[in-house]
């Protein structure tokens, strides 16, 4: 247990912070801790957590994805057309939504891998493209998602919010197995040192492509879940989620220089970020002061993470690799 804690120190801290924040939130909420309050909270958190996972897959291979929000907007708009009707229609619709997400991710990956353009610039351009496509589908917000299906994903099962079950499932059924595969290892290898990974015979371009495709898949899932929560399509949801997803992965202990951090950490970071926002809402602070306090807390949290440099023994250590 001690070993497990030590090797996951960053995640452990993030989860501890989250626990404290959540307790504060539930204690300060006017209607107290009940299933309804927790469900609303969990739904908002899960949207950002899925976006943060999308960002995680870009950051872990030493990239960054500025198109996360754009892919969410596009998949949200696709969902507002197709996730309705009979059971089969909706199943096909969901498949189409996720396929669009994966396609966007693969397109990003192809521009980065084959076009040899830095991820930050490549995704800056593709984000404009994806938002354009989303606007083509929904020039103004509209459309509808099947209410029963949306309820099934956004309410609770025996008092446990479905969003939390989904979050747990992503970690247990997707991340834990993935981490143990060659691909999971390859993600970290490419992120730590592309050259070393290449010289060890790893298919670096394939790993990058797959990583971007998975990022697209999760951005698609985020867009889909956003659709379940709002039950409508809106092409303008992107910008906030892109920037918050970056902040979330950093809060969750994922290093922007690649190769360090876990998907669990990224999700925890997203939950923390959203909980701070919700906490603010019920804290009794004047509403106009809230954006400032939110920014201050974000900066403070990141600065504490960076305060490690103040006690390094050798000044050269701060330059990293």
């Amino acid at each position: 247990m001690g070993n497990l804690l030590r090797s996951n120190q960053r995640e452990a801290i993030a989860i501890l912070v989250l626990a404290v924040l959540l307790t504060l939130y539930l204690a300060s909420h006017p209607s107290g801790p009940n299933t309804y309050v927790i469900t609303i909270w969990a739904n908002q958190c899960l949207i950002l957590a899925l976006a943060a996972i999308a960002q995680f897959f870009a950051v872990i291979v030493r990239g960054i994805d500025l198109s996360v929000g754009a892919v969410m907007a596009l998949t949200n708009c696709v969902a507002s057309y197709f996730v309705i009707g009979s059971g089969l229609d909706m199943a096909l619709g969901i498949a189409a939504v996720l396929a669009v997400g994966v396609a966007c991710g693969l397109f990003n990956g192809a521009v980065v891998v084959f076009g040899r353009i830095q991820p930050i610039v490549a995704t800056l351009a593709t984000a404009s493209l994806f938002v354009g496509l989303a606007l083509l589908l929904r020039p103004t917000p509209g459309g509808r998602i099947d209410y029963d299906l949306a309820d099934a994903f956004t309410l609770d099962v025996f008092g446990i919010p479905t969003a939390l079950i989904i979050a747990a499932a992503v970690i247990v059924l997707f991340w834990v197995p993935l981490r143990r595969t060659g691909l999971g290892l390859g993600l970290y290898a490419v992120g730590s040192s592309e050259q070393a990974a290449f010289q060890s015979g790893m298919p670096v371009p394939v790993i990058r492509l797959v990583s971007f495709a998975m990022g697209g898949l999760f951005a698609g899932l985020a867009g889909l879940y956003f659709s379940f929560v709002t039950t409508t399509g809106d092409a303008g949801i992107g910008p906030n989620y892109t920037l918050n997803s970056i902040a979330a992965v950093v809060l969750g202990g994922v290093a922007l220089r690649g190769g360090v951090g876990t998907l669990t950490g990224a999700m925890a970071g997203a939950f923390i970020l959203k909980t701070i926002g919700s906490l603010m809402f019920f804290s009794g602070l004047p509403p106009l002061a809230q954006p400032f306090i939110e920014g201050l807390i974000l900066a403070g949290a990141i600065a504490i993470g960076g305060a490690g440099v103040l006690r390094v023994r050798n000044r050269l250590e701060v330059f990293g690799k």
Binding site: I246, P291, E294, L296, I302, G305
Partner: peptide
């Protein structure tokens, strides 16, 4: 503090907004 500029300047931006 050696915080990645992408994150730090983003945080500064949101504080200014505030």
């Amino acid at each position: 503090l050696r915080i990645p500029s992408m994150v730090w300047t983003l945080a500064v931006n949101s504080m200014l907004l505030g």
